[in-house]
């Protein structure tokens, strides 16, 4: 008999001491020659910032390789949002990774969003604005027909690094995936 999966429950508002005790926002040192900043704001359906969310990221290294145990670059990061709903990671840009159909996926970062009021995590992806060619043939991006909705998966170039805002609901809602 196949056991049923345990249901998800919200992370609630009190996770910080357990999950964010160490700084996991820097996947590489900010002095790293290829370091990039990826930042943004989480907002709710009223457009208000969400100050008690947590984002986790999972990504390949610049060669498009996902970390194995013991690798120097872990590919994993975690950041709580501040009072203004902001988060920021310092990482390196991932390379292209294979797609099951033999094509390539454009460079992207997988993202999980947790918060009070989210009974299960939300999953999205961050793609890069300076990868137009790769993005145009990415199987996941091209599967979204509405170009405006598709564009919510692509970060924009900010003053320092990339900006990716996570609007949970409403007209500005970004794409979330059924994983």
């Amino acid at each position: 008999m196949t056991p049923e999966p345990t249901p998800s429950q919200t992370v609630g508002p009190f996770f910080h001491d357990a999950l964010l005790a160490e700084d996991q926002t820097r996947l590489v040192n900010p002095d790293h020659p290829s370091a990039i900043r990826v930042s943004g704001t989480v907002c709710d359906g009223a457009g208000e910032p969400v100050p008690d969310a947590m984002l986790e990221i999972w990504q390949a290294d610049p060669e498009g390789r996902y970390a194995q145990p013991g690798d120097e670059f872990s590919g994993f990061g975690r950041c709580g949002t501040d009072a203004e709903g902001r988060f920021e990671f310092v990482t390196v840009k991932p390379g292209t990774v294979p797609s099951p159909d033999g094509r390539s996926q454009a460079p992207h970062i997988a993202v999980s969003v947790f918060a009070r009021g989210l009974l299960k995590r939300l999953v999205t992806r961050i793609y890069f604005p300076d990868e137009e060619e790769a993005n145009a043939s990415d199987p996941v991006l091209v599967s979204v027909e509405d170009p405006d909705f598709r564009a919510t998966l692509v970060a924009r170039a900010g003053e320092v690094g990339y900006v990716f805002d996570v609007c949970l609901q409403g007209e500005k809602q970004i794409i979330f995936f059924d994983v």
Partner: peptide, 29 residues
């Protein structure tokens, strides 16, 4: 699994996405 929107749980009302989720076939990521 629970839904995203469960109105009895007040905080889901402004945080649950209201556009349909996009099905993501599993890849290496």
């Amino acid at each position: 699994q629970p839904p995203y929107l469960h109105p009895a749980y007040e905080s889901t009302r402004l945080r649950a996405p209201d556009r349909p989720l996009v099905i993501l076939p599993h890849t290496l990521s």
